[in-house]
Computed example of a mutant assay.
Amino acid sequence: MDDSFVVSPDWLAAHLEDAAVRVVDVRDAWEYDGIGHVPGAVNVPFDSYRDETDVDRGTLPGADAFADLLSDAGISPEDTVVAYDDTHGVFAARFVLTALEYGHDDVRLLDGDFSAWNRDHETTSDVPDVQSTGYEADPLERDDSPLVGLEAVENALERDAVFVDTREQDEFEEAHLPGAVRFDWREVVDDETRRLKPADELEALLAEHAITPDREIVLYCNTARRISHTYVVLRALGYETVAFYEGSLTEWLANDGEVVTGSSE
């Protein structure tokens, strides 16, 4: 597993004193304050970096708005950022994807979540003092971004791309893109440890669904939250040709895109 995308709790514990490593807790403020958090972590709640108005590239918050969040959190562009939540990493993965899209070079997902961290490492209720950094985002050029839109998805349907639907079975049966395979994002998580399954087990599991590194892969769900987790996992496993359909099924249906009902499994 590539630790430039995903880091273990032990890795984070060993780097907490490193001034260049900044930890971001994306849970709600009441959880961050009332339950406790990783020492030194700042709180950037999930709702604060998700735009529901569809003004700026789907549900992304916009480069300036995101830069303001990171600036207020005391984060600089050169920092190594590690994000976590308490929901197996799905909300934190959305933060990772957003930061990457807006040009932050080094942002990683904590393998597991707060509950996994809390099993072996200390927590605190102390809120760190931070100074605003004047962060400036540097969004990826369209050709460098994994995000794809409606036209690119339509074109990919004409090729041998693997469309991966990361939703639950009932959602998939109600409507999915033609030829899509269903791969519930939670399949990569070990329910007992709350961490990712071993890399070799993940690779075998993905291969069973024809999700292999040699294929062009297009991820979608409903509103691009769940695919964020799958995207980070695939990149950590070395997958390179992974497209991220930001509009997902919500945009597809709004534009009368063709869908299939029932199970293909």
Rank of each mutant, 00 (worst) to 15 (best):
L100F: 04
R119P: 07
H229W: 05
G179A: 10
V23W: 04
V7C: 04
D28E: 14
S71E: 09
W117L: 10
R182N: 13
D256A: 12
D56M: 11
P139C: 08
A175G: 08
S8W: 02
E240L: 00
V148M: 05
I75N: 05
L253Y: 02
Y245L: 08
M1D: 05
V96S: 01
T124R: 03
S125R: 14
V21W: 11
F46A: 04
D28A: 14
A99M: 07
I35A: 13
T250C: 02
E136Q: 15
T261R: 14
H176K: 09
T241R: 14
R22M: 13
E151G: 10
H15P: 03
A92G: 03
L16C: 05
P77H: 10
A243T: 12
R226G: 05
V55I: 15
E154G: 11
A180Y: 05
D190F: 01
C221V: 05
L253I: 12
V130R: 10
V6D: 00
T261P: 00
L150I: 10
D2S: 11
T59R: 10
D25L: 03
P213A: 08
A175I: 03
A20M: 13
Y135G: 07
P146Y: 04
V7N: 01
E201W: 07
D144S: 10
T166G: 04
I217L: 14
S248D: 06
